[in-house]
Computed example of a mutant assay.
Amino acid sequence: MSEAVLTSAENGVLTITINRPEAKNAVNRAVAEGVAAAIEALESDDSLTIGIITGAGGTFCSGMDLKAFLQGELPVVSGKGFAGFVEAPPAKPLIAAVDGYALAGGMEVAIACDLVVANKDAKFGIPEVKRGLAAGAGALLRLPRLIPQRYAMELALTGDFIGAERAAEIGFVNRVVDGSALDGAKELAATIAANGPLAVKASKEVIAKTEDWSHDEMWAEQQKIIGGIFTSEDAREGAAAFAQKRKPEWKGR
């Protein structure tokens, strides 16, 4: 895997670090390919329940590497989009741990994640309109589904930045922490990783798909996803562990 992206796994959590601090973790082709490979590792490893994506050196991600772009390099992976995953997020949950700035494509990386933990001094923004561009890596599509439309409209049309507290107020950030966002994200990830992996993955899938279902079909569609969980080994193990007052030993089946 490229040195532009580092990974480490511990207790069911895969941490993915964009490692270009000298470029404020701007996304070039190497980052996109590295993140794509890391996401594939997250998906294929049954010992992993959840991932965290963060940036080295105190900055989350400043967006697309414009120098690389001017040299004809596109920071995308075919079928997966910008940063190697924004068009095809993993089936397993992903947390963005945001220190410093998450701007333009950097904010769109956070948008593509399921949860966001931010340091109190973090800044978010999609300033593309200030350069005559549009936020085409997911912000215009996904942000109105995550926060009230009028707030999404303001961010998109003004290009202005907002702080972590404001981002939490409007429903974009889950947790604001005083210290390292990565430490806060690891705490949240540990809580999730302690749960049944099949149930976690299925719960994410239902929530991600529910707005595409009509009222008449939503119960049947949900059943297709969660039905097998209730007859799984993990479901029996969870019930047994509760009855025996012990920690469950998940098998992922």
Rank of each mutant, 00 (worst) to 15 (best):
A110D: 03
V98H: 02
R142D: 12
L141C: 00
A112M: 08
K92Y: 13
V116L: 02
P93A: 11
L157D: 15
L140F: 03
T158L: 05
D114L: 08
E165C: 02
V129R: 09
A134E: 13
R166F: 05
I147E: 06
I95A: 01
V129C: 14
A152G: 10
A96E: 07
A167N: 07
L155D: 12
D160H: 11
A134Q: 10
A104H: 13
A118N: 09
A164R: 08
K92T: 08
A97H: 03
L115E: 02
P144S: 10
G163L: 04
R131A: 14
D121E: 12
G159S: 09
R131H: 13
A137D: 15
D114N: 14
G136Q: 10
V98T: 06
I162M: 12
N119F: 00
P127S: 07
V109G: 00
Y101D: 07
R166C: 00
A96Y: 09
G125C: 09
P148Q: 09
A118G: 08
G171V: 12
Y151K: 12
V129E: 09
A152M: 06
I170R: 03
A168W: 04
I170T: 07
A112T: 04
D121A: 11
Y151M: 11
G163Q: 10
K92Q: 06
A134N: 08
D121H: 06
A156V: 12
Y151P: 00
D160K: 11
R142I: 09
V117W: 02
A164Q: 05
L94V: 11
L155V: 10
G138P: 07
I95P: 04
A156K: 00
G100T: 09
L94R: 04
A112P: 05
I126F: 03
V117E: 01
R142F: 08
G100K: 11
G132A: 08
R150A: 13
I111P: 02
V116W: 03
A96V: 03
R145Y: 01
C113F: 11
A167L: 08
A122P: 01
V98N: 01
L140Y: 03
E169W: 00
K130A: 15
R166S: 00
V117G: 01
L133D: 05
G171K: 07
L141E: 15
L141A: 14
V117C: 01
G106P: 02
L133Q: 14
A156E: 12
G163S: 09
A110L: 05
I111C: 04
A97Y: 04
A137Y: 14
E154Q: 13
M153H: 14
L115S: 01
D114K: 04
T158A: 07
V116Y: 02
A167V: 09
A122I: 04
P93T: 12
G105H: 08
G171S: 11
A96R: 03
V116R: 03
A104K: 02
A97N: 05
V129Q: 05
A110S: 10
